[in-house]
């Protein structure tokens, strides 16, 4: 049987018996989710790499304590998030890496969603808007920002996010909604009101 078809539980059982290939398969399978969670928390690819590696190493060492009450992915993501929080505490420079407006290249226009047939003015406004959204998200309270980034990554279910952030699903949903609301308010304060949004080719909510 191909190892890609083997379920996590079976791979975990084999890894517990010392099968390194089985654990490598688990790493291969889950590293995008682990890396993305780490990146959501620490904000830098290099640091996220370190955190993700530490998380896998820790998971390997604690494999015997995994009782299968949650899925292996949830368990692994919880370890990852805890490692990321430790990293955050150690370094005070964790989040500012997301705010790289001045020294970062402009957003490629083809990556920006806009209405078909948008004018160059609309494209420029949309690029500016996305840049401001990035900055505004970076200034959100941590709990709201974490929930928004994890939820919008498309990698995790609300249950998995709840396990990582140690909060009920309802709370996570509220945080995501509240994060969006605060981003909208902060954008309006920056001059991205309804008129500016129309200018950027966006429809009103």
């Amino acid at each position: 049987m191909s190892i890609s078809r083997v379920e996590d539980a079976a791979l975990v059982a084999r890894a517990r018996e010392g099968d390194h290939a089985a654990f490598s398969a688990l790493v291969e399978r889950h590293h995008p989710a682990v890396h993305r969670a780490a990146l959501s928390a620490v904000g830098s690819t290099t640091d996220a790499d370190d955190v993700a590696q530490e998380a896998f190493l820790l998971a390997y060492q604690r494999l015997r304590s995994f009782r299968g009450e949650a899925s292996f992915k949830t368990w692994l993501l919880t370890i990852t998030w805890n490692q990321a929080m430790n990293h955050r505490r150690r370094s005070g420079r964790w989040w500012h890496r997301f705010v790289s407006v001045d020294d970062s290249p402009a957003e490629p226009f083809d990556a920006i969603p806009f209405a078909s047939g948008a004018t160059p003015e609309e494209l420029a406004s949309a690029g500016e808007l996305r840049n401001d959204i990035r900055q505004v998200i970076a200034t959100l309270p941590r709990k709201l920002r974490d929930a928004l980034l994890l939820a919008q990554s498309g990698e995790y279910s609300y249950g998995e996010i709840g396990a990582m952030l140690n909060a009920p699903i309802g709370t996570i949903k509220w945080r995501v909604s509240e994060a969006r609301k605060q981003v909208r308010q902060l954008l309006e304060a920056r001059g991205h009101g309804a008129g500016a949004q129309r200018k950027a080719g966006l429809r009103e909510r």
Binding site: R36, L39, S40, T45, A48, F98, A111, P113, F114, A115, A126, L129, R130, I133, R134, I137, L148, L149, L150, A151, Q152, S153, G154, R180, V183, R184, L187, H192, Q197, G201, L202, R203, E204, R205
Partner: peptide, 18 residues
């Protein structure tokens, strides 16, 4: 025609897509 929320979500996704 995307709404502002859709753009917010998209930017948030992009921030963790490396």
């Amino acid at each position: 025609i995307p709404s502002i929320d859709a753009v917010i979500d998209d930017v948030a996704r992009e921030m963790t897509s490396t």
